[in-house]
Amino acid sequence: MTAPDSGSATITQEKATVGHKRLQIPAIYFALTLLVVLVILFTLGNQNFLSAYNLNTIGNYAAILSVVALGQMNTILIGGIDLSVGGLMSFTSVLFVVLLQLIGVWAFPICILVALAVGYVNGAILTRIKIPSFIATLGTGGILTSLALLVSPLPVVAPGSKYGLLDLVNGNLLGIPNLLLLALAAFVLFYVTLRFTKIGRNIYYVGSNIKMSWMSGIDIVGTRNFAFVLSGFGAGLAAIMLSCNQFGGDPTLGNVYILQSIAAVVVGGTALTGGTGGAVNTIIGALILAVMENGMNVVGVDAYFQQSILGLVIIISVALTFDRTKTAMIK
């Protein structure tokens, strides 16, 4: 309860803090239920949904989406957003193919480093120049898209001589496609970071209550920079995985992933207000999206209508998970 005699003039302080009990059931159970329900629905619509071939398609898509969504998750956890993942993915994909030709296997680490650097710049614009993340990343995303188009206005095919290198992603290990293993490795990385490292835990503190975190001595600047670096990493890795998978780079491939990565994070139960949710939520969210995308195709829903449905799904998920006690006024 707010103090009775705080002398404050506002109405909303009283309303916003009156006994708000959180939903006791974690959002993750809703997400899982939704996933199961969708699978059942689509299977009823078309029994081929559960075929090995189709599951493989879903798996590939989910793997890539998971990686970029896991990156995006960090910026959302901290209370911001990264709208530059699309541009970064596009740029990384063409850069990767170009570098493959020039420096072979070194293309992998260089591209990751570039992605990390971009993430850092996003964080720096927020922490040093103090521009809100959604405008800053909107701007950097635009710049990255144009950089991608500058590097290569048209899709560029990977050089045949380097196909062997692409097996890093396209190959199998003990029968499991590397693509899935990489996604799994990314999941483990993000999960462990968030759950078992101090800086990962700080992302939650900062996202949950930034003022308290600051007063308790947490390094706000460092934590935020880290979150955006992680997002850059996710986008960069996903782009590399995608380029290998498609044997080429495309300066426009990233655009779709802005919406999809945010959707995966939010649908999985991570609130836009930050401070709740996590890697498991995001994987489930990515699966839900992959299942929806694939399922709608298999069942015959018009390709363009799907975008509308996705938009609706996001609005509903946000409406359900947004923590309204956090912002006295919703802007």
């Binding site: 363009y304 209508f305 938009g311 609005i315 947004f322 802007k331």
Partner: peptide
Amino acid sequence: LLNTKLKIPSFISTLGMSWVLWGLAVF
């Protein structure tokens, strides 16, 4: 309405609406 009655922050609600309407338009 999404912003005031459902209390969804404008940047998500308008972004979502954009996608919904765009999809409808193409459909």
